[in-house]
Computed example of a mutant assay.
Amino acid sequence: MIPKLIALDMDGTLLDKEGNLPPDYWELNELAARRGAILVPASGRQLATLRAMFPQGWDFIAENGAVIVHDNEIIGTTELPPAAVSAALSALSTVEVAHTIVLCTPETAFVEEGTGEEALTEINKYYRSLTRVDDLNKVAKTGVIKIAVFCAQGSEAHVAAPIRAAVPEHNVAISGAVWLDVMAQGVNKGIALEKMAALIGTPLQETAAFGDFLNDYELLHTAGLAIAMENGHPKLKAIADIIAPPNTEHGVSTVLRQLLSPEQE
Rank of each mutant, 00 (worst) to 15 (best):
L28K: 07
S93L: 03
Q56R: 15
A109L: 05
N29W: 14
T49M: 14
L14T: 12
R45S: 06
N215M: 05
K195H: 09
K4Q: 04
A140C: 09
N247V: 10
G143L: 10
P234C: 12
K17P: 00
K17F: 00
L219W: 02
N215L: 07
A119R: 05
A228E: 03
A152H: 15
S261H: 13
K4R: 11
A166G: 10
V159K: 04
Q56F: 14
A88Q: 02
A91P: 09
N124W: 11
T100N: 05
I6Q: 02
L21D: 09
E265V: 11
H158Y: 14
P3S: 08
A119K: 07
K141T: 13
E107K: 11
R128W: 09
K125Q: 13
D9Q: 03
A42S: 15
V172T: 04
P168V: 02
A223Y: 07
V40R: 08
P41S: 04
G76S: 13
E73M: 08
M1S: 11
S175Q: 03
V97K: 10
A177G: 07
E169M: 09
A209M: 04
A83K: 13
M10L: 07
I243H: 08
S261N: 12
A184I: 02
V255K: 00
S129H: 15
A160V: 06
Q56S: 15
K195E: 07
N215H: 02
N231K: 12
T202C: 06
G36D: 04
V159N: 09
A62W: 02
L204T: 02
D9P: 06
D134I: 14
E117G: 00
F60L: 11
C151T: 06
G154H: 08
M183S: 04
F54W: 14
T77N: 03
V252R: 03
G201M: 01
I239F: 13
D71Y: 06
V102W: 05
K125N: 12
I145F: 08
L256W: 07
F213T: 10
S93M: 02
I6K: 04
A140P: 08
Q258G: 13
R51T: 00
A87H: 07
I74H: 02
K235S: 15
N171G: 02
D135R: 15
L15D: 03
D216T: 10
P262H: 09
K146G: 02
I243F: 11
P203S: 06
T248E: 14
L47I: 13
G232S: 12
